[in-house]
Nucleic acid binder design. Sequence first.
RNA 1: CGGGGUGUGGCGCAGUUGGUAGCGUGCUACGUUCGGGACGUAGAGGCCGCCGGUUCGAGUCCGGCCACCCCGACCA
Length: 491
Amino acid sequence: MSNKLTTRNENYSNWYNELVVRADLAEHSEVRGCMVIKPHGYSVWEKMQRALDDMFKATGHQNAYFPLFIPKSYFSKEASHVAGFAKECAVVTHYRLKNDSETGEIVVDEDAKLEEELIVRPTSETIIWNTYKGWIQSYRDLPILVNQWCNVVRWEMRTRLFLRTSEFLWQEGHTAHATRAEAIEEAEKMLEVYATFAEEWLAIPVVKGVKSPAERFAGALETYCIEALMQDGKALQAGTSHFLGQNFAKAFDVTFVNKEGKEEMVWATSWGVSTRLMGALIMTHSDDNGLVLPPKLAPIQVAIVPIYRQLEQLEQIREKVMPFVESLRKKGISVKFDDDDNRKPGWKFAEYEMKGVPVRLAIGPRDLENNTVEVARRDTLEKNMVSFDDVEATVEQLMIDIQQNLYDKALKHRTENTREVNSWEEFTEVLKTKGGFISAHWDGTAETEEVIKQKTKATVRCIPLDAPEEEGKCVFTGKPSSRRVLFAKAY
RNA sequence: CGGGGUGUGGCGCAGUUGGUAGCGUGCUACGUUCGGGACGUAGAGGCCGCCGGUUCGAGUCCGGCCACCCCGACCA
C-alpha cells in the first residue's frame, strides 16, 4: 500500500476523497451516489448530533418523527417548493415484487401499482404542515417547536462523500408561530445556535448572513445561513435557517384563532444541518498526514501506544498506565490504550494520525525508567517528553489548547483569504489567483448575480448580517450599492 | 444529460502479436522483531463486470449491455 495521501497541493479534490476513505470515515456503497458511513465516521456524527440536540432542547425544542414517504399531491401545493425539488425526487410507484413466471427473476409486480405515487422526502415541510393543520386551532397551540433527525433523498447528478450524496442524514426543525416577528426571531435564534455550534464544537469560524433571493430555499421568504471557508479557498454552506412566512400555512390551510377571536394564518420556520458538516470539518482542519479532529468531536481523544519487546514489558506498562487511563475516563476524556500485539508502534502512530486522534502518548521501557511519557499533538505534530506525574494535567490542557488552536488557525486562514475588492478587474484577478471570500459591492439584482456566476463561477454566498452600511458601486455594473456582500466559488 | 476513465484474489494493479492468470498489499500459521507504517519461511484465496460472436483455443479480438469513478451543467 502506498502510505502517503495525495497532498493538498498536488490535488485537493483527490486529497479529500482519499482521506475520507483512508481515515475510515466512509466509503462508496454499491448504490450510486450513496455512501456507507463507517463506525469511525458515524461516531463523529453522533457527537455532533449529541451537541446539537442538547442545544435544540435547551432552546425549547422537542424531537418527533414524520414519514419517509410523502404523497405526490402534497408537493404540488406550494408552487416554488415543488419547482425547487421536482428535478431531484425519488418516486415510489409500486409496493410489491414477484417472481416472473417465465424467467423466475424477481420483477416489479405491475398489479401492485400505487394509486398515488409517493415521494421519498427531499425535505419534510409539506408532510409536516399537512400534519400541523390538525394540531393547530388556537393561539394556545402555538408555538410548535419540533425537530426531527432523519435521512432525506435528493437525486443528485454528481456526488461526493459527505459533501453531496443522494441520501444524507440531517436534522430539520419545523416551527409554527402566531406572529411574523416571533417566526423571524426563531429563524435568527437557530442561526445563532448553528453558528455557536460551528465555532465552539467544529472549531470552524463562520459568517452569518442572509441569502440572495436566487439562493433562497424553495418556499422561503428569507434564508439565513452560515458560510465557512475551506482550505482550498472555496466556500461551503454549513447550515441554513429559513423564515417561511405564511407560505406553507396557506398551502395547507393552517390557521389559528387569535386572542381576539379572529382567524389568522400561521407563521413558519425551518432549519437544518446535515452530514455535510462532516465534509466541512474534514476540509477545514485536516492536513497531508490525514484527518485532524477537534477534541470535542474526536471519538478517541487520547491514544496510548505502548512500546515493548516481551509481553512482560507490556504488562509493566499497563500497570503503570491503567490508573491514569481510568482517571482520564472519569473526567470524560475518551482514551484508548492500544495493546494490540499484532501492530507495531510505527504502524499505530501513522494510523492514529490518519484517523485524527488529537493526542497520542507513547510509553516504553525508557519511560518506565525515567518516569516520562512522549506526548504528541495531532494539530501541530509536536512531540514532547513529559513527566508521568504531569501527563494528566498536560492532556487536559491539550484538549482545550488543540480545540482553540484549530479555531484560531481556521480563523486566520479565513481572515487572510477574505479580500475587499472595488473593481471588476480586481474581482476576476483575485478569484483567479487567490480564491477565498471576496467582499464587494453588488447592485442587488438577480440579473447581475447571474451574469457574474456565468462569467466567473462565483456566487453571492451571503449578505453578512454584520455588514456595515457603506455607499459604493456594484463591481460589475457600477450601479449604487449600500453594503458589501461576500462572493466566492462554492461547494 | 454531455465528455473522459475504469471493471482481473479483500484492496491497489500488471497481463506484449490470442496459448489455460501474475505482482504488491492484506489474510492464516510459526519464528525473529518492536521508540515513525518490521522481516523470514510456509500457506489459503480468482466464472478476469454481464450476454453474445469470431477461433482448435478469448482476460486479450468483434458487437451489445451493465455498473462505478472523475470532469462539466443542477444542487445542501
